[in-house]
Amino acid sequence: METEARTVDNKEKECSLLVIVLDTNPSQQIIRRDSHHVTQILDSICAFSNAHLMQRPQNKLAVLDCHHHGTEFLYPTPGRPLDIRQVDGQYEVFTLVEKTIKQKLAQIISDAPKMSGPCESLLAGSIAMALSYITRLERNRPLGTRINARILVVTGSNECASQYMTYMNVFFTAQKQNIVLDVCALDKSLTLLQQGCDITGGQYLRLPQLEGLLQYLLWVFLPDPETRLKLVLPPPVKVDYRAACFCHRELIDIGYVCSVCFTVFKSPPPIAGKPKKKKVRQM
């Protein structure tokens, strides 16, 4: 009986931190098709963030923007928060979140350097930034409280196997820190990020249509990991665990693995400059 009371007490003292990584790279297909999609996605993300903050007063939020030239924080911004008064019936905190996100994103887009051609989104770096933020908050928390953190990646980019190493680093770090990684794929199916969700125990969802973004977010990604056990959610997808070779960044089925440092190669590498012992291992 005592342990029950304690668990209820602890649940109240827990704070649920949601970090959203939003991909606003202009090279994405969905944005190139119709730039109004950005507004739509942004509105849905704002509503979803506010819904998260609405759940409990202890819940916290951070939003990162992954642009083609770097990652920036949309919320909370460094320095003093905006002085917001209510203009309508919306709760003050929600208005602050919305206004801050929109203002900062507008500033980022207008300040962004010109793009020479389509380029990849640096999502792995954004996830790393999110992890650092979470670690800093964990370090500064008051005694006796717990922070449950999760990262939600919303992206319409294609698969980029060139960031394979960084992705793996980031996934295993998140797993060690008990941070859950969720992914909402707006356009194409993303195998690498799927692996990340599988490793950390998060949810992966590929949207059938963009119009229902908010509803999908609310249904699948709003409950925190503990509550997800009590609800019925889309079952985990079969994950493609093929590794990418280090020389050409291609996903391979059969390859060569160095027995010293475990680097994966598509074809036997030249001896010079690489560890001597090589062993062929089927994947």
């Binding site: 008064r85 209510q86 309508d88 019936g89 919306q90």
Partner: peptide, 19 residues
């Protein structure tokens, strides 16, 4: 209706927030 107002906006401001 009122929960949507609190979450998304619309409706009148609460009583004590005149400029």
């Amino acid at each position: 209706r009122n929960l949507k107002i609190a979450l998304l906006g619309g409706g009148r401001p609460w009583t004590m927030v005149n400029v």
